[in-house]
């Protein structure tokens, strides 16, 4: 019987201790913020939406290789000898047209592994974290300056050029093997 009342007393007493504590917290400054109206500043190293500075991209595909979830798709086309693509801001010579640089941000796991191997530091994570979309296809970001049609044109152009090169190479080679007796002797 005595224990029974003692238990009740202890229960009420410990509840009162708790109530005292929570009452104290009425006068403590709130730690929460009203999110859409007030936003915290993210630290410099914050890892959120990926961004690619395509002007600096040399199309080396290091980021594509590093991605554990394969959310980066890159297609490149070789530049023709008469085209000068210039250099990146870090001084690397650009040799490839980057005809496609797509990042499916809905697949991205924000691990940041693509950022470190980039030789020109053109792919990096920004502090943008609000990028919801109504259509999921809008979450595939196209960073390349080429539209798909232009990319197709470029590809054809290069194919054409390579074909010409081949023809050019093939022709003198034939002449050499047929007309020059020294060559025939050497071969035999």
């Amino acid at each position: 019987m005595r224990q029974y009342f003692k238990n009740i007393f202890v229960a009420i007493w410990t509840i009162l201790i708790g109530l005292k504590l929570t009452f104290k917290h009425l006068f403590v400054r709130a730690v929460t913020i009203q999110y859409p109206d007030v936003k915290l500043k993210l630290p410099d190293r914050a890892r959120n939406r990926l961004y690619v500075n395509i002007d600096d991209c040399i199309g080396c595909r290091q980021c594509e290789m590093a991605c554990p979830v394969d959310c980066i798709t890159i297609e490149t086309v070789k530049a023709l000898p008469n085209e000068d693509l210039g250099v990146t801001s870090t001084g690397h010579k650009k040799r490839l047209w980057v005809t496609k640089f797509d990042i499916d941000i809905s697949k991205c796991c924000y691990c940041g592994l693509c950022v470190y191997p980039c030789p020109t530091e053109c792919i990096y994570m920004t502090d943008v974290y609000e990028f919801s979309e109504y259509n999921r296809h809008n979450l595939i970001y196209h960073f390349s300056n080429f539209t798909p049609e232009e990319a197709e044109l470029k590809k054809k152009e290069v194919e054409q050029f390579e074909l010409e090169q081949k023809m050019k190479k093939a022709k003198p080679a034939e002449q050499v093997t047929v007309n020059n007796p020294e060559n025939i002797e050497k071969k035999s």
Binding site: P43, R45, A46, C109
Partner: peptide, 12 residues
């Protein structure tokens, strides 16, 4: 953690 590596939950 966030100021150190940029992520809050899955750090890498």
């Amino acid at each position: 953690f966030e100021i150190t590596c940029g992520a809050r939950l899955l750090y890498n």
